[in-house]
Amino acid sequence: MTIHKEGYTTIALSILFIFIINAFVDYKYADITWLKWLIYLFSLFLLITVLQFFRNPSRTFTSGENLVICPADGKVVVIEETEEGEYFKDKRLQVSIFMSPVNVHINRNPISGIVKFFKYHPGKYLAAWNPKSSTENERTTVVVEHKNGTPVLFRQIAGALARRIVWYVKEGDNVTQNKEFGFIKFGSRVDIFLPLGTKVNLELDQVVKGGITVLAELS
């Protein structure tokens, strides 16, 4: 397991904060043993929390020409037909994966193909499970066209804790299944929009892993 590049600055700042607060407590409250140990334990907890959030575990990825692979770790919170109003402007099959702060937050391309559309939207920071988060929160929208001509839309959505969405793709890019397309910091959600009738291999509340769990099969 390694640490993702998006975590370098946050980890460095966290270590600096821990050093300062521990040095202050050691200097100001040297005789209060219980307080020093409380701060030590808090510092350890903070460091472990930040490190685990930015972890990048080694994985053996699942791949397949007609497979749609889960783009993120988390839990399936939505499987339903819905109106997609930004790009398709018609009914699509939506699958949503909620990422808690303890999940790996790397986002991976669910299919290989050409990026036909990309847009970043600034917005609010409603809880990621709130239905309005799909249209009101800070988010990105990516549409990748499979070589068989099927377009798949996936959307990064910031949550109540997430304050930064990172993306690595742009229109015209030729992307590869399971390669990173982005990262969301501290709790979030990814929506995937598929053609109606697509065979979905997931169930509600199922725990999935990005790059490993098969989400659907394209016809």
Rank of each mutant, 00 (worst) to 15 (best):
E81T: 09
L194H: 12
I18E: 02
V95Y: 01
E84N: 05
G7M: 11
V95W: 01
H146S: 12
K89I: 14
T2I: 10
V68Y: 06
A160M: 13
V144S: 03
P57M: 10
F117G: 01
I79T: 07
N107G: 05
V190R: 04
E203G: 13
V76P: 13
L126G: 02
S58E: 15
E6A: 13
G172P: 06
N66H: 14
K179P: 00
V152G: 05
P195A: 14
R108F: 03
V104F: 04
V77K: 12
V102F: 15
F19S: 12
S14A: 10
E80S: 15
E6H: 12
I111H: 05
K28C: 07
K147S: 14
I79D: 11
F17I: 15
G7P: 00
K209N: 11
D205N: 15
I11H: 07
W34P: 00
A23F: 14
S133A: 15
L51G: 10
V207H: 12
T2V: 04
I106Q: 04
L67R: 09
S43Y: 13
V207R: 14
A23M: 08
V207L: 09
V190D: 08
L202D: 14
S133C: 02
Y27M: 04
R55D: 04
I165A: 13
L161C: 03
L202K: 00
L196W: 11
K170S: 12
I97N: 03
N103H: 10
F186C: 05
N56H: 13
E136W: 03
D191H: 05
F88A: 15
H4T: 13
I11T: 00
E86G: 09
L218V: 11
